[in-house]
């Protein structure tokens, strides 16, 4: 009984790592542009489809090469999306047209997948062998999911703290005007942030394809859970996503186990609403001393 719970917790952490990575990909774009990319979930699923079409059953060498190809292709796609979203829009009505354009890109990607692939879930063979925890076989991709989260956390940290472009992207999120006054190439950095977010979700989608439902309508589930993870951790805080993601994953898994699989998303929604009502800045979000 106890070991059963433990297994569920470990699977939850693994699934939650996916949410955490998506949340980190939100953060980097949001920091640089103040945009939240609603299409991120479908970009993630594209990674899964890439794994199915390019590397299902392939050898390790081919698989690794395709991982890179898929990651770069999705990075290019997301930065193109970013380019369109950032095109200066003349609107007398509102400035938040990005909200509409990212939602419509999400719908477009989902629709293209639905038209070309049909409403089916594709299963992808795992490249990583399954391993045993407490006597239960655990798919290797769960390990990859956790690995990917840690990898991207470390990679982002190194990038944002130690490379010139990374520092500049951090600067954009800390003081946009001062960054412009300093002559930082704002638009190029913003596109870079989009590209990195695409690389993140594309590669993770590819890696975890064996344990997710690779289907045209699955993207929304991931964009939402990724968002919940980002909110729980505190928007903008990557270290927060390391807690927020696994937390959401574990809640979802425990809900599935105790209440029923259909209630996973309900549980995430409840987590989201309660965080927003009681602690909108998230666990690691800073309470700003600014006045209202």
């Amino acid at each position: 009984m106890l070991s059963e719970i433990l297994i569920i917790v470990i699977r939850g952490i693994a699934i939650g790592s996916i949410f955490a990575t998506i949340a980190m990909s939100f953060n980097i774009v949001h920091g640089a542009t103040n945009i939240f990319n609603f299409a991120q979930g479908n970009m993630f699923i594209l990674g899964g489809f890439a794994a199915y079409f390019l590397a299902n059953g392939a050898g390790i060498g081919m698989w690794a090469m395709m991982l890179i190809v898929a990651g770069l292709a999705i990075a290019a796609l997301v930065s193109f999306q970013g380019y369109i979203t950032l095109l200066p829009l003349r609107s007398s009505v509102e400035q938040d047209s990005w909200l509409i354009s990212t939602v419509s890109v999400s719908v477009i990607v989902g629709a293209i997948l639905m038209i070309t692939q049909g409403p089916f879930a594709y299963s992808v063979q795992s490249i990583a062998p399954s391993f045993r925890i407490f006597g239960t076989r655990t798919p290797g991709a769960y390990g990859l999911a956790i690995f990917a989260m840690i990898f991207w956390y470390v990679a982002l940290r190194l990038f944002l703290k130690h490379t010139y472009s990374g520092l500049a992207i951090s600067a954009l999120s800390q003081d946009f005007d001062a960054a412009r006054a300093a002559g930082l190439p704002v638009r190029r950095l913003q596109l870079l942030a989009f590209a990195i977010s695409g690389l993140m979700v594309g590669s993770v989608g590819f890696l975890v394809a064996p344990v997710i439902s690779v289907s045209p309508d699955a993207g929304l589930k991931y964009v939402l859970n990724g968002f919940v993870a980002a909110v729980v951790g505190g928007i903008g805080s990557n270290i927060g996503t390391l807690i927020g993601g696994p937390l959401v994953g574990v809640v979802a898994m425990l809900t599935a186990y105790k209440v029923g699989g259909a209630y996973q998303d309900v549980a995430s929604l409840l987590v989201l609403v309660s965080i927003l009502v009681f602690r909108p800045q998230g666990i690691f979000g800073r309470v700003t001393a600014r006045r209202v």
């Binding site: 829009l89 009505v93 354009s101 419509s104 629709a111």
Partner: peptide
């Protein structure tokens, strides 16, 4: 669905006021 998305995207780009 594709048309919904494309029409909306097109509107945002070409006619931001609808």
């Amino acid at each position: 669905l594709l048309m919904y998305g494309c029409l909306t995207m097109g509107a945002v780009m070409l006619f931001p006021d609808g």
